[in-house]
Write a protein that binds this DNA or RNA. Structure first.
Length: 898
RNA sequence: GGGCGCAUAGCUCAGUUGGUUAGAGCGCAUGCUUCACAUGCAUGAGGUCGGAGGUUCGAGUCCCCCUGCGCCCACCA
């Protein structure tokens, strides 16, 4: 038997324990194992990231699930890995280059990629190390990276298949463009937030008018939030029902400054109530306008460079940044008396989710995936319950998005990522630049789609082939994660055993980015759902409710907390305060919960180990030797096992944690340990102490893996070597004992009542008092011998059986009633103040009268007695009897005091 | 414009299908340096469950409306 150090030292021990688990390879899940498979896949953190509280919460939950299932005997696989995060990582490396005054084009594509790989090798595993310090029991030997060869093959395979089915196309569309990152973004990657911007009203003259004086005759007024886009205007649109503009029917307008002629088109999509009802049409720079342009066969004039500067089509504004240009144009319009006014206007503006630059809707040629056919299947499996969201409300959010899904822009004009596996034959294609190729259907001449570069063109035999310069959206590899990490497209025992996985634990932010797409990919390529349950946890916020983010400086770094109080304390705390799917409001003091609990568990264990004698621990517990407290704690232990299982099954982690906290602290420590100090036969008590501790440690292990393992290693009994792989406890029916639990609860209430008297009258804890316990209510009966002994010991009192009138007269007695037992507490005259006692009793009496009135009224109500179920009515009657008893008792007390 | 969430003790929050006197942690008050633990022990105070209405024998819990806060989605030029 090892002795535990006086103080628990997580800083020192957690790392050691983790290493010993790793050495023994205990996180490994055997794909050929005989256990039932249980698999979860990590939401791959991106390689530029560092562990934040969101990760801590997310991964603690997953670790709880996987440890729980592992102990239940499953072959439990937690598949770890990281995500290459194309734009984010490229930005990081570009910043490094910028320190030397270099841009990525200066070093060239191949050199640049080499630098990114170097960066990845050096820094890309930071987050993995941090997950280890959190205690995550991932199967690290299986760690995957989205740019690994295997996963890259999966990406190519998927691209080719989608292309061949006609689900991938390339063409000119308005997409979200980040001028800073200089790439297209998907709709999900543009974060919209409301901005108090300006709506500018500008005069557009009618061609041929001599002056600009009369509105809707000489000129019309258009309203826009982005005046700089007028450089690309090709028309003005109005609603055909809008009479104000019917005069424009055969007219042409003149674009101010640029002096371009603008067509007038009428379209029902134009809202007459917005602005002036006249809409300037810029097909190359606005999605609505783009649609109008297509419908009315208008040209598109793209006036911007990729970096957001105005290009040569912008005339005198060429070279200006878009916002600079906005100012210049407004000034010029004012100078020419073409500017009417500007007003405040709240509207949603897209921002790049990686660099927060304002996104520019921009016409460009990109690759897309047709999503509707994929979404159809994804909707079905959620509607029919094959995949369940927890909490359920996310189902609606998911379905709403899926039902309104739009095509996915998957090409990015960056270098870090999976290069699009398409080669163009420059001889066959008439285009000068391969960027200009449109692809609307599979099998276009001169376009070669496949995993490898073809030797020569299949059409002309030429060898002048050039690969598409773009890379794929990072999520185009992430959406394959549940099966690509298991070896797909190759078949194998891993894929076979662990797919479909069991649960996905993630944050709401990536339901669209990731969850929905994984479902679609799984159904499309594996013909099966990727997971059965999706648990969406809340967002971690600071104490004021703001989302924690590095840029706001309001983060609490999990690593600091781990350094401070240990990973166990961090884990237990964050789980305790996170109820199902609700956001978490975090502040440093919240971690006291876990720290204090770990300390409590440590000290209780220390006490047990110091006191039990090894010789008493052999053999089973003999039910015949059990005292009341033994029976009670074993019964409660069984209930605790059931509750923990029930709550884990329902993804109610905080409830499971609360059940354990209450059992270990308030039942085992507060009562059982205290009673064990004086009651029962040593041999049995030692066995029970250890048995309950053992089971408690196991139940707590998924939540606090380190401390439970460390204490486990010190236990002096026959046991499995490691708690992490020991079998999960099962309730032992033979210890069910409701009767004892009820009797124990009675004793607890009586003890509390007597302690209350002691505290109220300020009796020194060293002073012994005399009490008499007398059953008042027939059915309650006498307190059992054990219970009476607990009362006597824990209240430091001498129990006098059947106190005689004579004895009673000798003392100033305080009478209390608890659990049908009348308690006479003997106190000496000088302690008891008659007035104080009168006040105490009267106050209590008042409260009881209130309850009683309520119950009486209820029972008088015929509707209640006739309609309510019999057991409820009986309960009420029972309450009534109890309160009547208590009231009469107190009345008697009060009378005696007068 | 649609959708969702929250409002319960001084603070932060639980409260599962409606049914004992609505719970926890922190904080507060009082008393304890009792040999596992002051990161502790004991006892206690503190709530007309945001407002109005409805369903029901019975509502913190279900329905409708209102108020305040927060989030998500949408081509509000």
């Amino acid at each position: 038997m090892k002795e535990l150090p006086t103080r628990y030292n997580p800083q020192e021990n957690e790392e050691k324990i983790y290493e010993s688990w790793m050495e023994e390879n205990l996180f490994h899940a055997d794909e050929k194992g005989s256990g039932k498979a249980y698999c979860i896949v990590i939401p791959p953190p991106n390689i530029t990231g560092v562990l934040h509280m969101g990760h801590a919460l997310n991964n603690t939950i997953q670790d709880i699930l996987v440890r729980w299932k592992r102990m239940q005997g499953h072959d439990a696989l937690w598949m770890p890995g990281t995500d290459h995060a194309g734009i984010a990582t490229q930005n990081v490396v570009e910043r490094e280059l910028a320190k030397n005054g270099l841009k990525r084009r200066d070093v060239g594509r191949d050199n640049f990629l080499k630098k990114v790989w170097d960066w990845k090798e050096e820094y890309g595993t930071t987050i993995i190390r941090q997950l280890k310090s959190l205690g995550c029991s991932c199967d690290w030997d299986r760690t995957r990276f989205t740019m690994d060869e295997g996963l890259s093959n999966a990406v190519k395979e998927v691209f080719v298949r989608l292309y061949e089915e006609g689900l991938i196309y390339k063409g000119d569309y308005i997409i979200n463009w980040c001028p800073r990152c200089s790439t297209a973004l998907s709709d999900e990657e543009a974060e919209h937030c409301d901005i108090e911007g300006m709506l500018y009203y500008i005069k557009y003259p009618v061609k041929g008018s001599k002056s600009i004086e009369k509105e809707n005759e000489d000129y019309i007024v258009v309203a826009t939030t982005r005046p700089e886009t007028m450089l690309g205007d090709v028309a003005v649109a109005a609603n055909p029902k809008d009479k104000r503009y019917s005069f424009l029917k055969d007219k042409t307008l003149v674009l101010p400054i640029v002096e371009r002629e603008l067509k007038v088109v009428f379209d029902r999509d134009v809202d007459p109530d917005f602005g002036t009802g006249a809409l300037k049409v810029t097909p190359a720079h606005d999605p609505v306008d783009f649609e109008l342009g297509r419908k009315h066969s208008l040209d598109s004039i793209n006036v911007m460079h990729p970096d957001g500067r105005i290009n040569s089509l912008g005339g005198k504004y060429e070279g200006m940044d878009r916002f600079e240009c906005r100012k210049a144009i407004i000034k010029d319009l004012k100078d020419r008396n073409l500017f009417i006014k500007s007003e405040q206007h709240l509207h949603a503006v897209g921002h790049c989710y990686r660099c927060h630059t304002v996104v520019e809707p921009r016409l460009s040629k990109q690759w897309f995936v047709k999503m509707k056919p994929l979404a159809k299947e994804g909707i079905k499996v959620v509607k029919n319950g094959e995949i369940k969201f927890h909490p359920e409300r996310w189902t609606k959010v998911y379905l709403n998005w899926m039902e309104n899904i739009r095509d996915w822009c998957i090409s990015r004009q960056i270098w870090w990522g999976h290069r699009i596996p398409v080669w163009y034959c420059k001889d066959c294609l008439k285009y000068k630049d391969v960027r200009d190729v449109n692809i609307t259907k599979p099998g276009e001449d001169g376009v070669h789609v496949g995993g490898e570069k073809p030797e020569k063109c299949s059409v002309c035999g030429g060898e002048n082939l050039e690969q598409d310069p773009d890379v794929l959206d990072t999520w185009f590899s992430s959406w394959l994660w549940p099966f690509s990490t298991l070896g797909w497209p190759e078949e194998g025992p891993e894929l076979d055993k662990f797919y479909p996985t069991d649960a996905l634990v993630t944050a709401q932010e990536i339901i669209f980015f990731w969850v929905a797409r994984m479902i679609m990919a799984g159904l499309k390529f594996k013909k099966d759902i990727p997971f059965r349950d999706v648990y969406i946890h809340g967002t971690v916020r600071d104490a004021t409710g703001t989302k924690m983010s590095k840029s706001l400086g309001n983060v609490i770094d999990p690593l600091d907390v781990i350094k401070d109080v240990g990973s166990d304390a961090l884990r237990f705390s964050i789980i305790s305060i996170t109820s199902q799917g609700q956001d978490v409001f975090l502040s440093k003091d919240k971690f006291d919960i876990g720290r204090n609990f770990a300390n409590k568990l440590w000290n209780a264990s220390r006490y047990v180990l110091m006191n039990v004698e090894e010789k008493n621990l052999t053999g089973d517990i003999d039910p015949a030797d059990l005292t009341l407290a033994d029976k009670w704690i074993l019964d409660q232990l069984g209930r605790t096992i059931e509750k923990v299982d029930k709550n884990l099954k329902a993804y109610r982690f905080n409830d499971a944690a609360a059940v354990l906290y209450d059992f270990i602290w308030h039942k085992y420590c507060d009562w059982y340990l205290e009673i064990s100090k004086f009651s029962g036969n040593k041999e049995t008590v030692h066995k029970v102490l250890i048995e309950v501790l053992k089971v408690s440690l196991k139940l707590l292990h998924p939540f606090m893996p380190f401390i439970t393992e460390q204490i486990w290693q010190s236990l002096p009994v026959q046991k499995e070597k490691w708690i992490i792989t020991s079998p999960w406890p099962i309730k032992q029916k033979k210890f069910d004992d409701q009767e004892s639990s009820l009797e124990m609860e009675r004793a607890v209430k009586i003890i509390t009542a007597v302690r209350n008297v002691r505290a109220f009258w300020n009796i020194a804890h060293t002073a012994e008092i005399e009490i008499s316990l007398e059953p008042k209510v027939k059915k309650s009966g006498k307190l059992s011998e054990d219970a009476a002994a607990y009362v006597s010991k824990l209240c430091k009192c001498r129990i006098i059986e059947n106190m005689s009138e004579q004895d009673q007269a000798k003392i100033r007695k305080i009478e209390v009633l608890a659990e049908g037992i009348k308690i006479l507490v003997g106190l000496s005259e000088d302690i008891v103040d008659l007035e104080k006692e009168k006040t105490r009793v009267s106050k209590k009496l008042e409260d009881i009268e209130k309850y009683l009135t309520g119950i009486n009224n209820k029972l008088k109500n015929k509707k209640f007695t006739e309609n309510a179920p019999a057991d409820i009515v009986d309960k009420e009657k029972g309450k009534q009897a109890k309160w009547k008893e208590e009231r009469d008792f107190l009345k008697g007390n009060l009378a005696a005091l007068k």
